[in-house]
Design a protein around this nucleic acid. Structure first.
Lengths: 204, 204
DNA sequence: GACACTCTGTTAACTAATCAACATTTTGTC
DNA sequence: GACAAAATGTTGATTAGTTAACAGAGTGTC
């Protein structure tokens, strides 16, 4: 599938990513220059252009890889059959989501941080909404049947989810992914999902 | 003086150094292999051999550069004229020593650490002793005249100095270099230097 | 003590990254 | 709005680093 990447390419990209995030945290995305990045990453400025068009391209590619990983894990989050949520599956998937965030912790922390990227939170919520939404229609789940607008449910869940993640990332001693998954799956199944008229399988 | 170093060389060495220290901390110097280093540093194993003979050579070169920096700062520590210690000069020099250690904090912490390098503490003390000793003879200071063996004074100072540094490095919120310099210069002038028969200039 | 296994040290052909130079564009400030 | 300074984006020639392949040294374990 993926042809083996030259070690230099792998290393260069890693160095650029790290430098970029560090600089965003220091001075904010807007004031980061390509020159800054090259200097911090110990690469020649010309090398940057071998990999990225500009800093917007870089931001997009970094974001995409983090978000792609997140959504690939998020995808099976609603393993719903016949309007029945399988609680255990929900729990393990949330756990995987938190593991993914832990792995890309630096990325998320910087993006959410004081000097983070404008609108990142909203964009992340949107990604999550789209994923939930797609899955719902795919499975024929129609909260409208229960007099709750689908959009409302989606905004409720995505906002709550991202809000909790943001809080979690700031904790110096973070509750484990397992713990977070346990608690969140309880809350979600107890609240919004029942409101949306989804039958809940018996709790673990 | 120093011809400009190719950016790749600079970067490769930095990556090797960081990887090396990280690995020593993880598994101890003895069990670190060149293969480990290459993998961690994202460089080819062959590249390692372009820069160092083996891990002993690497250790020596890393150590040398840290120690060289230290001693170059340590050199003027005893600005003694006519057996009179200039307290203010002593203070500022200790301050610089602590700044140097702060800069190479990772190096020193790893070397002193649980998986550190055997005998590193003793070697460091020796370096310090040699520097003090050289300076003393250079200036004709003879504590023997006051019935204290020179070696005893040297061991007293070097051991105390390194002991304090080791303690300092472990503190999560370290007293500043200024603070350390202030306190240490007081202790040293009050204790061993007077014992060695050196007249002390009036305190700041 | 012979087996598989990992680590070492070295090589020649290939390639990514550097250098330094250039013309442009953007930024900031007087 | 005009000038200097800094950042951008591109280039061709040069070099450090990669690759993969080698033979040999050290480890352990059955």
């Amino acid at each position: 599938m993926s042809k083996k990447l030259d070690l230099r390419v792998k290393r260069t990209r890693k160095l650029i990513n790290e430098a970029f995030l560090k600089l965003i945290q220091q001075k904010g995305f807007d004031s980061v220059t390509i020159q800054d990045i090259a200097e911090e990453a110990l690469i020649n400025r010309a090398t940057f252009y071998l990999h990225y068009e500009d800093k917007y391209d870089l931001l997009e590619k970094i974001s995409r890889s983090a978000i792609d990983e997140l959504t690939s894990v998020l995808n099976p989050v609603l393993h719903i059959s016949e309007h029945e949520v399988q609680v255990e599956k929900l729990r393990t998937t949330i756990e995987k989501v938190y593991e993914s965030m832990e792995k890309n912790q630096v990325f998320y922390t910087v993006m959410f941080g004081e000097h983070g990227v404008y609108n990142f939170r909203n964009n992340l919520e949107e990604v999550i909404r789209e994923n939930f939404s797609k899955k719902m229609t795919e499975l024929g789940v129609r909260p409208e049947d229960f007099e709750i607008p689908k959009d409302m449910i989606l905004h409720f869940i995505s906002a709550a989810f991202v809000g909790v993640v943001q809080w979690w990332l700031k904790q110096s001693t973070k509750p484990s992914s397992q713990e977070m998954a346990m608690k969140l799956s309880k809350i979600i199944t107890a609240g919004p999902m029942q409101a949306a008229g989804l039958k809940i399988e018996k709790q673990l």
